[in-house]
Design a binder for these strands. Structure first.
Lengths: 109, 109
DNA sequence: CGCAAATGTCAGTATATACTATCGCAACTT
DNA sequence: AAGTTGCGATAGTATATACTGACATTTGCG
């Protein structure tokens, strides 16, 4: 799971993930979107693949990637669980605080 | 926003965040939970603070921290938006693809 | 087979960062 | 005022990692 988190932290990898979220793309096509070398993108793809965030399919000499929704869903579930436990309680506290502050102020809607 | 993402990536900082999610805690109390030096924890707290994920309050010589739900909510909203846009669509595609494979042979374009 | 295209792998490098040690600062205590 | 407590800031170090360049591999074509 830490692998998936590490993977989406790198901005370049998030961009790559966005690219292959809507469409399948070959490694070369992905690399063409960036100003770094093809190898660098290849390494990013490897990391995304190991983290389960993209799938790889071979077509001749090309390797075609796309986002792997299951991987994204797992990561999302983990993060949700991470903070949702107490987030609601804390949110209530903040809202109560805000209500207290705006009590004497104008109230719209 | 990248600051918030960088902040929650580091496992130690996620632990710290968990500690101050339920309760206010002074820096020293937080540091006592870990086997690294007090200064290291202080640096983590600074990073969490700059990312807007914790709030700081002074009480005499002590600095008391706690999770900042707004910061967490913003981060969560960003991540939600990041992958929820196409997540459902991709899931449908994958399921359709799997049906196609079990149906008959592969057909490319 | 020989060559080109598309891509991954590896070694080396540069930069980021998590940590420690030392120091500095503010608030209390005596 | 002087000492103590609780912290943060900074410099230096060790490790992680994003990148490039060189090379290897697989596939397709003549």
């Amino acid at each position: 799971m830490q692998a998936a988190i590490d993977a989406i932290v790198e901005p370049r990898r998030r961009e790559i993930l966005c690219l292959v979220r809507d469409q399948e793309l070959a490694a070369g096509r992905i690399a063409a979107h960036f100003d770094v070398t093809r190898q660098a993108v290849s390494q990013h793809l490897r990391i995304l693949y190991d983290a389960g965030l993209v799938s790889e399919r071979r077509d001749g000499t090309r390797r075609i990637y796309r986002a792997r929704p299951e991987g994204l869903a797992e990561l999302r579930a983990f993060l949700d669980q991470f903070w949702s436990e107490r987030l609601e309680a804390l949110k209530s506290e903040v809202e109560a605080e805000q209500r207290r502050r705006t009590d004497d102020a104008d109230r719209k809607q």
